[in-house]
């Protein structure tokens, strides 16, 4: 099948303003959008710049706006998006070149929620025990690959980049509800601050954008409830 690929281009070194380049390609319905970008880069325009690595939705490098929706280019097939495909950088982070954005503000928010396991008791000789039910409690939020598709689909984040954003809250949730972790109270205090969960307007954009199908809005609601009730059930 023939597809038209329209790609956002901008190199601040040389370009006054962004533009869209249009490429006409032959594609298979099962081709990934990433395959199309790779084809353009290999055969038509080597200067097209974007991040990619694993190419199967695990590493989180290639989040981009595809036909107006945040997706991973390697997890989006041509047959699912049609024959005219518009590819743009994710919104709300500075564009550095073409589809590459500055991820540093995103990771800065992530780091603010203390996204690491904390348990200051001397560890036992073997594993700490945790029941399958306790383990299941935070399973969904362990799936996060830090691709930023959620945070950069959030209207609150677009309006004000100081909002931690859904990805940071998801990663806080992963520890808050881990029965082995001891720093839930500190994380909840951080998330109760001005940049935290109360900014969420429950638009569900994040949940729709997540390529790992994490129930993000639900996770945010659980964090809100934990702040209000002081309970982690």
């Amino acid at each position: 099948m023939k597809v038209t690929l329209k790609v956002f281009r901008y190199n601040p070194e040389t370009d006054q303003r962004p533009r869209y380049d249009v490429f006409h390609l032959e594609a298979e319905p099962n081709d990934r959008v990433l395959d199309l970008l790779e084809k353009v880069k290999a055969e038509l325009d080597g200067s097209l710049s974007y991040r990619r690595s694993c190419a199967h939705g695990i590493c989180g490098s290639d989040a981009m706006r595809i036909n107006g929706r945040n997706r991973l280019a390697c997890k989006t097939l041509v047959k699912d998006v049609g024959t005219t495909i518009v590819v743009e950088p994710i919104l709300g982070l500075p564009v550095l070149k073409d589809l590459i954005v500055d991820m540093e503000p995103f990771f800065e928010s992530y780091r603010k929620v203390m996204p690491w396991f904390i348990n200051t008791d001397p560890p036992p000789e073997k594993e700490r025990l945790q029941s399958p039910e306790e383990r299941e409690r935070f399973d969904d939020t362990t799936k996060c690959i830090l691709c930023a598709a959620c945070t950069t689909s959030c209207p609150v984040f677009w309006a004000d980049g100081s909002y931690f954003g859904p990805a940071a809250i998801v990663n806080a949730h992963r520890f808050i509800f881990d029965s082995r972790d001891q720093a839930a109270a500190e994380r909840l205090a951080i998330l109760a601050q001005e940049e935290g969960v109360w900014r969420c307007r429950t638009s569900f954009n994040c949940t729709e954008a997540c390529p790992r199908e994490i129930q993000i809005t639900k996770a945010i609601a659980e964090v809100k409830r934990a702040i209000l009730t002081g309970r982690l059930d």
């Binding site: 348990n119 073997k126 594993e127 700490r128 025990l129 029941s131 399958p132 306790e134 383990r135 082995r180």
Partner: peptide, 20 residues
């Protein structure tokens, strides 16, 4: 080293008695 990873927080799946 697997116990060390568990102590660092790796969320291994669990047996019914709570072990890895």
């Amino acid at each position: 080293i697997v116990y060390e990873l568990e102590h660092m927080g790796v969320p291994f799946d669990r047996t019914s008695d709570g072990r890895i």
